[in-house]
C-alpha cells in the first residue's frame, strides 16, 4: 500500500484529501500518475495534462522519474504560494 495526499486546489477538485492505494511493486511517479489519470473526469484533467502539478515522495519534492516504493507517502499539490 501507499498513502496518497492531495492539497489545496487539487484537493478541492478531486473531492478527497487522502487515500490508500494498493502498490505491490516499485514503480515511477509517472506510472502512478497514469493510474490516477485513468480514473477519468477530474482525475484525468489533473494527472494527465497538468504540467504544473508538483509531487513529494516521503515529504521531499520529487520528479516524474522518482520511484514509489510500497509504504511510501506521496503528496500531489499545485505550485506553492506561501510567504
Amino acid at each position: 500500500m501507499i498513502q496518497l495526499l492531495y492539497f489545496a486546489r487539487l484537493r478541492e477538485s478531486l473531492g478527497t484529501r487522502s487515500e490508500q492505494l494498493e502498490w505491490p511493486v516499485p514503480a515511477s511517479i509517472a506510472e502512478l500518475k497514469r493510474q490516477l489519470a485513468a480514473r477519468g473526469g477530474n482525475w484525468h484533467e489533473q494527472f494527465a495534462d497538468n504540467p504544473s502539478l508538483c509531487v513529494a515522495v516521503n515529504q521531499q519534492l520529487a520528479t516524474e522519474t522518482a520511484t514509489v516504493q510500497p509504504g511510501d507517502e506521496i503528496a500531489f499539490f499545485p505550485p506553492v504560494t506561501g510567504g
Binding site: 492539497f7 489545496a8 486546489r9 478541492e12 504544473s52 513529494a56 519534492l61 503528496a75 499539490f77 499545485p78 505550485p79 506553492v80 504560494t81 506561501g82 510567504g83
Partner: peptide
C-alpha cells in the same frame, strides 16, 4: 530564505474578496 520559502515550502493561499474565494496562482 524568503525566496526558497516562496517556491519550495508547501503552503497555499486562498484569498476571499468581494468577488468570491480563489486559490492564488504561483
Amino acid at each position: 530564505i524568503m525566496d526558497y520559502l516562496k517556491t519550495e515550502a508547501p503552503f497555499w493561499k486562498r484569498e476571499a474578496t468581494s468577488e468570491g474565494t480563489v486559490w492564488l496562482d504561483a
